[in-house]
């Protein structure tokens, strides 16, 4: 048996080439500066920024986080400095890292804001890809774009015309059929889908009889949602052709591998960044070790290679 000396973790998502498939998820990594003391940021596959909107956003009323069994709720509400301040204040640091930067964007009022943002980001050499956050549960909207296949199709189509950069559409798990929405994103020209955003949730302080979050409800993340995420990745993998970036409660190498085997081409580390700032880097070396131990030359050899129980 030939031993694998240098496992190959590189991959491409549309025009976006990555040296490894481990990203950090939007909203859990700030604009990367916050993690510079803990890890060598250059080792990351890609960095997805905290979501950016056209105008600065203050975000929701505190308290904004609370712990739940094996997870946490957040209702940050997309606090961010706005696109202009992002470009001026945050991008220079990110550019120096020489790691693909994926700008996560969202609209506050009208879907047209996506077009404004994409036009601006399209011109920037420091931005490698754009993630359309059409699935944030913390905007006090009755319905998210990603909860409707037609709206998802229209939104993705409208921005697809504006950029040749890699487009990733981030979807909500709060839907009847994830495949229906993923197919709509694919048909509209999205280069990849990111699965999953947080699950809508609520937690109550029984002594005070008040919700634990200032905005009452929030998004659930962490290991508690991992089985939901793995299942949705697996379902979507069987229906769509574009790559899937899998996320939802990935804490370590083993949980990352679940996503690859279910069908994800890349993964994002989210809540784990809060608990162990080194989680993403540990997963990169853990994947190499797994590949070496199992004689796997290319990570693509395990993507979607789920076997039936009695095989």
């Amino acid at each position: 048996m030939v031993k694998i000396l240098k496992p190959n973790l590189s991959l491409a998502i549309g025009r976006l080439g990555l040296k490894n498939p481990v990203m950090v998820a939007s909203g859990t990594f700030g604009y990367a500066e916050e993690f510079r003391d803990f890890i060598d940021l250059k080792k990351l596959g890609a960095i997805v920024t905290k979501t950016i909107t056209v105008k600065p956003r203050h975000g929701n009323l505190p308290p904004r986080t609370c712990e739940t069994p094996s997870g946490m709720l957040n209702s940050i509400g997309l606090e961010n400095p706005g696109i202009d301040q992002f470009i001026e204040g945050k991008l220079p640091f990110l550019k120096k890292l020489a790691v693909p930067i994926i700008a996560s964007i969202a609209a506050e009022e009208s879907p047209d804001e996506f077009s404004i943002l994409v036009k601006q980001l399209d011109k920037l050499s420091g931005i490698s890809a754009i993630e359309l956050n059409i699935s944030c549960p913390n905007l006090q909207k009755d319905k998210l774009i990603s909860q409707d296949a037609k709206e998802t199709f229209e939104l993705v189509s409208s921005v697809r015309r504006l950029t040749k950069k890699c487009l990733i559409t981030k979807l909500s798990p709060n839907v009847t059929s994830i495949c229906e929405i993923a197919l709509a994103a694919e048909k509209a020209g999205s280069d990849a889908v990111a699965l999953i955003n947080t699950l809508s949730g609520m937690s109550i302080d029984v002594n005070k009889r008040i919700p634990k979050l200032g905005s009452w409800v929030g998004g659930l993340s962490g290991p508690a949602i991992r089985p939901v995420a793995v299942k949705m990745v697996w379902e979507a993998y069987n229906k769509i052709r574009i790559p899937i970036i899998g996320m939802g409660g990935i804490m370590d190498t083993e949980s990352a591998l679940e996503f690859f085997i279910a069908g994800a081409s890349a993964i994002s580390v989210g809540t784990a960044n809060f608990i162990n700032p080194r989680a993403s880097i540990e997963i990169i070396s853990g994947l190499k070790q797994y590949m070496a131990d199992n004689n796997i030359q290319n990570l693509s050899n395990i993507i979607g290679r789920l076997k039936a129980c009695n095989d």
Partner: peptide, 16 residues
């Protein structure tokens, strides 16, 4: 004092 998720300024959870 506030409930914190990350403690390092990344999550914007503990704002005042």
């Amino acid at each position: 004092e506030e409930h914190m998720a990350c403690g390092i300024g990344a999550c914007l959870g503990c704002v005042v």
